[in-house]
Amino acid sequence: MNGFFDLPSDLQYSYAGLVGLHLREALIPVLAGLVIALPLAQLCVRFRWVYPPVLGLTTVLYSIPSLAFFVVLIDYFGQSETTVMIPLGVYSLVVLVPGIVDGVRSVPRETLAAAEAMGFGPLRRYLQVQLPIAAPAIIAGLRVAVISSLSLVSVGMLIGNQGALGNMLYDASTYHLPLLAVNSVLTTAVLGILADALLVLVRRLLTPWMPRKGAAR
């Protein structure tokens, strides 16, 4: 019997294996993007003149189609996971930086003045005041980055089957198995929705201080 979750053997992975691979290929870049975005955003907040060029550069990077990005990187990293993950990291960075900058800038001036007057140093002010207050903006950025990253991994199928769940699409077209494509699409979508829900939960836990309101985001 060919069950929904039994995959053709040429995929070289079980269903669960592909899910794990997909998560890894999608989430490591977002994490890397966040690690770079935090200091970069702080730089943009500290030195206002840095922000416009950073914004311009990230806008240009974002407009490059993922597939082209992958192909160019093949020369340097071969048909590998790294080749897929670098563009995803760049896209995450692009999504996160403006969100974090706006979040940190949204800290009211009175709050910063109060912190300064109580003798908070710059590092303490960043960690204990700016970062917590920017947390909702950072998580909003993470939600967009995670969901688009999960979706884009599939395209990696085109560069030598590096697309995790996307690799099912290759078999689906080659052997004409629409169900396999349905499986790939739905699994990716469910992963995206679950990750999104998880991030919403994290935000709720991190920000008991926010007024509750029903907002579409």
Binding site: V144, I147, S148, L150, S151, L152, V153, S154, V155, M157, L165, G166, L169, A181, S184, V185, T188, A189, V190, L191, G192, I193, D196
Partner: peptide, 9 residues
Amino acid sequence: AGRALPSFG
């Protein structure tokens, strides 16, 4: 849900 659906797939 719309965002979660992978375009390529």
